[in-house]
Design a protein around this nucleic acid. Structure first.
Lengths: 366, 366
DNA sequence: GGGCGATATCGAATCGTTTCGAGGAGTGGT
DNA sequence: ACCACTCCTCGAAACGATTCGATATCGCCC
C-alpha cells in the first residue's frame, strides 16, 4: 500500500486545501461533507472530486469535536480489575447492553480501569484526568472515599453510577438487591431451613477471604454486598456464618464451601449449615462443586442458592435456585441515563426489578 | 452539589477567561497548567487562584487534542459480538494485557463492535467512521472482504491486526496456531490414535454448526480456525470428522460431543473417534461434559485435547491436554505495535510461541 | 554604573472544523 | 422589464488550547 502518491503538500490535506483545490469556499466544502445545509449536487461533486485527488479522507473528527464541544465518548470506569471483572459474565452482559445502547446513540465506550492495583491500593487512572469524555459511568465500585469520583467531579464530567453508593446529583442505576435476597431467604425459611450460611461478594477494595464476624453496615463498602446481606436480615434470618470471598469467581465459591462445610469446622453434622446463600451464581456454582467434593448432595444434604440468573451450561442437569436480574436491561438503563444527561436533563435513580427463580438446588433441610 | 456559585459569565470558563482574571496572558496561563515551560511559582499560584474562583476545571482535552493532532485513543474493533467475545476468557485476557500496556502509554481503549448482527450480516459500526482514534486494532475477525477494514483504510487510520488475515502494510500479532496444533496432533498419533475428530472454531461470520465436509482453505474465513486445521494435516492426520461450532463456548462443545460420539452416528463403537481435538479449551471442556453424559470415560474411552491453556476451575481434577498460548503477552504485543506505529515506525509481524501442555485427558486409545 | 545572561512573560499563529447571517445569482410571474 | 423570491455560496467568527520566537525584567559581575 503505497501512500506517497499524492501531491507533495507535505502536510495532510485539510478541508481548507480541498476547498481551494475545488475553487469553493471553506464553508461550502464543509457543507459538501456534512450535508447539513443546501448545496448544489454539481458543487458537491466538484468538492468530492477535489478531495479524492488530494487524498483527503473526510473531516477530521478532532476539529468537529472541538467545534461541537462533544467528544462522543463515554468513559466507563470498571471498578474492579479489568481481568477480574471480565471473567464475570454479569459484568459482560451489562457492558454489552450498555455498548449497544450507546452505540445506537452514536456514542463510544472508552474503557477505563478503576485503578485497583494488585495489592489492593487505589490509584486514579490517568485517563480519568485527561481523556475527553462527555459523561463517565462508574460501575461496580463507588467507594466511601473515591479518588476517581473526586477527580471526575473536579473536572466537571457528569457521572452516572451503576451499582454503587448514591452520589449527590448523579443518576444511579441499580437493582432491587435487597428485596430479591429477602424473597430468596424467605423461600429457604419456608422450606424449614434454620442454619443458613452466606457466601458473600467482596466487602470492598481490600480483598480478603474468610469468616467475617463484624457485619455492621459500615464494614461493607461495596453496595451490592451490603444490600444482599441486608436482604437476608429483612427476611428475619441471622446467618450462622458469613464467608467473605475476594471475587465473584467459581474457585472462590468452591474454596468457601470446602471450609464452611468441612468436618473440621463442624464435627457434628447436625450443626452444619443446611443452606448456603451465595451472593452470586458463580459463587453458588463453586459452592456446589465444593459440596460435592466433600461428598454432600445438593439439595438433599445442603441447599444452595445464588444470585444473578446466569446461564451456566457446565452446571450439568441442576438448575440453580437464584434471583434473576435483568443484566442487559441494566446496561440499557445506564445508556439511557447517559443520553438524558447529555440532553441536559437530570435523570434520577432507576431501580430494576428482580425475579426469584426456583431451581433444583434448594429443598427441605435433611 | 450546587453548581451555580460562580460569576455569571454564562459560558463555561475557558483558559482565556482565567488568564484575563489572573491578569496574565493566555500563554502564561497555559504554562501554569501544562508545566511545560518556565513559570514563576508566584504567577502560577495567581493563575490557579483565578481558575479556582472562576470554577475552571483544567484545560479542555478537546483543545489539546486538536492542537496536538492526537486523540490518545485506540479503537479496538471486536470481531465477534461483544457479548460472545467477552464470554470467552481468551478474549478477556488479551484485552486485559492490551489495556494495561496501552494505559501505561497514556492511551485509552475505545470499544468498537465489529458489526456482526444477530443474523450474521455485517455492518460497519458508525464509530468506525466517525470516532477520532490514533490507531485501530482489528481483533479476531479480519474477513476476506471486510467493510470495516476498508473504512479504516479509507479514513487513513493506521491499523494493527490481532489474529487474522495479514493485511498489506499493517502490523500483525498472532501465535503459532499451526505449529502448536501440529505438535498436539503428533502427541495423539504417538499414543496410537488413528481415528481423530476435530471440533473446530467457527469458520467465519456465518455461524453454522454441524459436520463439515469441504475443508478446503478457501472455505475458512477465520484465520485461527484455518491454521489450527492446517496444523492437524501438517502432522499427517486426516480427521475422520470435522464438526464446526458457532462459537467458542462450552455449550457448543458439549453439543458437538453429543453428536459426534452418539450411538446413532457410530452404531459400532469401534468406528467411533478415539480422540477429539477441540480448537479451544472451552470447546474441549464442553466435549468432556458431553462425553461423560454419554457414559464415556476420558481418557480411557476417548481422549480430548484443547487449545489456549486456560485455567478452568470447574473442570474438577482433570487437567486438560492443550496448547498454551501467551494471552496477556499477546495483548502486550498488540500494545507495543500500536506504540511503535504512533512513533512513526513500521512494525512488522509478531508470531508468539505456544507450548504443548500434557494433561490427564489424553491417553492411549481403547 | 553599564552590560550581559538568565528567567518570565507575552503576542500571535495554528490546529480543522462548523455555523450563522449576509450577499449573489438565477427563476418565474406580472 | 422589473420585482420578489428561492436556492446557493461565501466570509468570518467561534471552539479551546499549545507553542515558538521575541521581548521585558531582574540580578549580578566587572
Amino acid at each position: 500500500m503505497k501512500s506517497e502518491d499524492y501531491p507533495v503538500s507535505a502536510h495532510k490535506p485539510t478541508l481548507a486545501s480541498v476547498a481551494e483545490a475545488a475553487g469553493v469556499s471553506l464553508s461550502t466544502a464543509s457543507l459538501a461533507f456534512s450535508s447539513s445545509g443546501p448545496i448544489a449536487e454539481k458543487t458537491r461533486a466538484k468538492v468530492l472530486a477535489a478531495a479524492e485527488s488530494l487524498g483527503y479522507r473526510g473531516p477530521n473528527p478532532l476539529g468537529r469535536q472541538l467545534r461541537s464541544g462533544r467528544s462522543g465518548i463515554v468513559g466507563v470506569v470498571i471498578g474492579d480489575q479489568l481481568r477480574r471483572s471480565f471473567r464475570d459474565p454479569v459484568s459482560i452482559q451489562v457492558l454489552d447492553g450498555l455498548a449497544s445502547t450507546l452505540g445506537s446513540l452514536g456514542l463510544g465506550v472508552l474503557l477505563i480501569p478503576g485503578g485497583l492495583t494488585e495489592d489492593g491500593r487505589r490509584v486514579v487512572d490517568p485517563l480519568v484526568e485527561t481523556a475527553g469524555m462527555d459523561v463517565a459511568i462508574l460501575i461496580w465500585g463507588v467507594h466511601r472515599v473515591d479518588p476517581t469520583l473526586d477527580a471526575l467531579v473536579r473536572r466537571g464530567v457528569p457521572v452516572v453510577i451503576g451499582e454503587g453508593r448514591p452520589v449527590d446529583g448523579a443518576p444511579l442505576v441499580g437493582i432491587d438487591d435487597r428485596g430479591g435476597t429477602a424473597a430468596l431467604t424467605r423461600h429457604l425459611t419456608s422450606l424449614g431451613h434454620e442454619r443458613i450460611a452466606v457466601v458473600s461478594l467482596p466487602f470492598g477494595a481490600t480483598r480478603r477471604s474468610g469468616v467475617v464476624t463484624d457485619l455492621s453496615d459500615e464494614t461493607i463498602d461495596w453496595t451490592p454486598t451490603l444490600h444482599r446481606l441486608q436482604g437476608v436480615r429483612d427476611a428475619g434470618v441471622q446467618p450462622i456464618l458469613c464467608w467473605e470471598t475476594e471475587a465473584s469467581l467459581v474457585e472462590h465459591g468452591k474454596a468457601a464451601a470446602l471450609e464452611i462445610l468441612s468436618a473440621e469446622r463442624y464435627p457434628d453434622p447436625a450443626e452444619r449449615p443446611t443452606a448456603i446463600i451465595a451472593q452470586s451464581d458463580l459463587l453458588a456454582a463453586g459452592v456446589m462443586l465444593g459440596a460435592r467434593e466433600l461428598g454432600l448432595r445438593v439439595p438433599q444434604d445442603v441447599s444452595v442458592a445464588g444470585f444473578d440468573g446466569l446461564d451456566l451450561p457446565w452446571l450439568g442437569s441442576d438448575v440453580l435456585t437464584t434471583v434473576r436480574q435483568p443484566l442487559a436491561e441494566k446496561g440499557a438503563a445506564l445508556g439511557r441515563a447517559v443520553a438524558s444527561l447529555i440532553a441536559g436533563e437530570e435523570p434520577g435513580t432507576t431501580v430494576l426489578d428482580v425475579e426469584l427463580v426456583l431451581g433444583t438446588t434448594t429443598g427441605p433441610p435433611p
